[in-house]
């Protein structure tokens, strides 16, 4: 499924740039222009140190960019927007160890929500990530992959229009990673969510997305935007052996290698 030209843009980034001030100013983001259409799954992939985290902080309103504008549903992002949730890479630091799994999820629900509805929302989110029984446990009693599921469930319970994910599966093993990737695809179907997914894993970026944006090293710009026309539903084995998949991943790998080589002395 390709991105329909008719779909409205949920997130619009125009001329985004960020410079960290200080004795040695550092330009993390050069100039970014892209859009995330409603309902799309967009991956961002780049070499290490391409300002991915800075970009996500700017998009989520946690940081004010030096230049440019971010618009969510047409409204300029000035503070932290209600319709956006961020899933952090470091799930063990992002989940609160003093709250149970259910407590962590309930944390993001509106305070005036009636008790029964609260419990229902928590349960619905936990069921969606396959952790229906884990509500009473503490996050630190769960494995890494399960903890990241809790973080995803928390973001789902918040019911945002768009989910930003910052290398969410970087620190889990390969098997768990594949499970979590398929979980994201399932969750996206179930909740009709728009997802912006940052990763350094090329295969993952292609496997999940409708569109892959390849970033350059800092100061980052978009090197190329590629539409992924692989059939859905995707499958961990058969999708990855399609010619289109292999070509796309090789193409992106080359782009990223060229980026990483830049600025290095010739061998």
């Amino acid at each position: 499924m390709s991105i329909q030209a008719t779909a409205t843009d949920l997130l619009t980034i125009e001329g985004l740039g960020h410079v960290y001030e200080g004795t040695e100013p550092f330009e993390a983001i050069g100039k970014l222009d892209f859009t995330v259409p409603e309902g799309a799954f967009v991956s961002i992939v780049g070499p290490s140190g391409c300002g991915k985290t800075t970009m996500l902080r700017c998009l989520s309103g946690l940081m004010k960019p030096t230049r440019g504008e971010v618009r969510l549903e047409g409204e300029p992002v000035t503070g932290v927007p209600r319709d956006l949730a961020l899933v952090f890479q470091d799930y063990s630091r992002s989940l609160f160890p003093w709250r149970t799994v259910a407590g962590n999820i309930a944390y993001v629900l509106p305070r005036d929500l009636p008790k029964a509805e609260r419990a229902a929302r928590v349960q619905e989110s936990l069921d969606a990530v396959g952790l229906g029984e884990a509500g009473a446990k503490y996050p630190w009693q769960l494995s890494g992959g399960m903890q990241q599921r809790v973080a995803i469930a928390r973001a789902l319970a918040y019911r945002p229009a768009i989910l930003l994910m910052d290398e969410p599966f970087a620190s889990v093993d390969a098997q768990t990673r594949a499970e979590l990737e398929d979980l994201m695809l399932a969750v996206r179907e179930q909740f009709g969510m728009t997802i912006l997914f940052v990763t350094h894993d090329i295969d993952e970026s292609v496997y999940l997305a409708d569109r892959v944006l390849v970033l350059s090293k800092s100061p980052s710009t978009i090197v190329e935007s590629l539409d992924v026309d692989l059939p859905r539903p995707r499958d961990q084995v058969s999708t990855r052996e399609l010619d289109d998949f292999v070509h796309l991943r090789s193409h992106i790998a080359r782009l990223i290698r060229d980026q990483s080589m830049k600025g290095r002395p010739a061998a």
């Binding site: 989520s60 932290v80 949730a85 961020l86 630091r93 944390y107 918040y158």
Partner: peptide, 13 residues
Amino acid sequence: VDPIAKLTAKSFG
């Protein structure tokens, strides 16, 4: 206090 924990709270409004 972990800055990520505080950032998490902030990101959820």
